[in-house]
């Protein structure tokens, strides 16, 4: 065991920050799954709603990207 305690804190913090990406995964899955179940009930209306689908996915995903950014900042910028 060698290395200093600040490095350890960086690595643990970066790993913990990545947990936030799981939340984004759940969110994107919910959006896509609900879209699919709605689309299978009413396929005729599904085509017009793909833009809404992508907007929803983008909003859900942005927060996961924020946590990834925090992890990157901890690893390389602090």
């Amino acid at each position: 065991m060698e290395g200093n305690i600040a490095d350890m804190g960086q690595f643990i913090g970066a790993g913990l920050a990545c947990v936030g990406m799981g939340g984004a995964g759940i969110g994107v899955g919910l959006v896509a799954g609900n879209f699919l179940s709605g689309a299978l009930r009413n396929p005729a209306a599904a085509g017009e709603q793909t833009a809404t689908l992508f907007i929803g996915i983008a909003f859900a995903e942005a927060l996961g990207i924020f946590s990834f950014l925090v992890a990157l900042l901890l690893m390389f910028a602090v």
Binding site: A58, F59, A62, I65, F68, L72
Partner: peptide, 13 residues
């Protein structure tokens, strides 16, 4: 912030 970080983060990742 979210508009720019989304694109840059996705590409970088």
């Amino acid at each position: 912030l979210s508009h720019s970080v989304r694109l840059a983060g996705n590409m970088m990742a």
